[in-house]
Design a protein around this nucleic acid. Sequence first.
DNA 1: ATGAAAGTTTAGACTGTCCTAAACTTCCAT
DNA 2: ATGGAAGTTTAGGACAGTCTAAACTTTCAT
Lengths: 227, 227
Amino acid sequence: MTKVAKRAPVEITPVIEDYLKTIYRMAQEQSQVKTTDVAKRMGVKPSSVTAMLKTLAELKLVEYKPYYGVALTPLGEQVALEVIRHHRLIELYLVEALGYGWDEVHEEAEILEHVISEKLEARIAEHLGDPMLDPHGDPIPALDGTLPETTATSLAEAPLRKRVRIVRVCDQHAERLRYVAGLGLVPGASVRVLERAPFDGPVTVRVGKRTHALDQRLARNILVEEG
Amino acid sequence: MTKVAKRAPVEITPVIEDYLKTIYRMAQEQSQVKTTDVAKRMGVKPSSVTAMLKTLAELKLVEYKPYYGVALTPLGEQVALEVIRHHRLIELYLVEALGYGWDEVHEEAEILEHVISEKLEARIAEHLGDPMLDPHGDPIPALDGTLPETTATSLAEAPLRKRVRIVRVCDQHAERLRYVAGLGLVPGASVRVLERAPFDGPVTVRVGKRTHALDQRLARNILVEEG
DNA sequence: ATGAAAGTTTAGACTGTCCTAAACTTCCAT
DNA sequence: ATGGAAGTTTAGGACAGTCTAAACTTTCAT
């Protein structure tokens, strides 16, 4: 009787999904994704990240070079985008169907994204009419993993004095979201950048009849388009 | 500076919730809940159950007497009822808001019940108008842990030839649910028991213009009331 | 009332994810 | 070019939840 090599069933756990999501997002912001960066974002120790990166590499979800950094494989990217699709669909659903505020949805989506079935995902997408954007203006990956194009610049770069339209607010922090919403800075709002202080100083914007000074780091996360 | 005794954070995990739910349901059907019974229902080995019962006892969620059996404490029962409330609210929500069939909701609810926040639970209940019954007619525990009274008997005991109304179908098996729905045996339907074969034999029921013979074990799970 | 069968618990091991502490590698300023 | 700081990996351990195998307890039929 030949001994059959027992194939490890190797599941993609919620934790793995979170790592992939984090790596995906960081890869968009920086060229190299390092162990410590991931550790900071995930709220775990670097040694835990190293261990997980080895696991992910074995699963062919990432390319991992010790001491250099990590990058998603196409497979890893696909998984990351599926999770992000879940997350953003859920956020939008909670707002549209259950009366959540845009500042309340992130935590809930962070958990649900890992556990909804394909069927529930499909029903939610259908109920929402296959939307392209979540409540923050973040694009929702399509089923095939493609992301809608975005040609937006941020308030930190937008041309001065020109009327622009907010298309996206990249932030997950509930209080900060409530703050910027309080200033009228929500997707769809029309604004003008009046002034930008030097040395990465505050950005002054006009919203309706009010003027507000925004920290540069915040301004960088508010994306606008012409119009 | 006084040293504060580090309180074990002892979380109630999804697995713990499943054990409590199982023990709760079994305690309703039998006087004693034994290790092996729990093991069968949960699909784990008896030794795993023993280990978990010890944990649950330490958490004051159950009263556990080795070799005798286990029973929920009031605290354990409260937790079980909260999970059951989640489960049934979710089942109803999926049917009402997202077009699920009553045979499709169980698996999804089985997972979601452990992860929805109090806030989401409240929004769902509100959206449904604080319902008393899920799609199978199972009562939904109230927020305070009280269960609506049920004075139903089953088709296995209902008086012969008398018109009765189905109020509840206690089954989680998707295919069986589709089968009984196909026979017209859904909550609200009006039926008559025509005959009951001896020795726990089949129960013959009249539904509309059709007559069906039901296995006694199935009949026991279809609850009816006068009318 | 006793011994085998059935049921239960204990002992010890494994997996996934995390940790701390120690060792190692890279980077950069001198 | 070199030595310390910063970053990273390795080693070893913890905990939750599972398993198998062995030991123990209860039950029941004779």
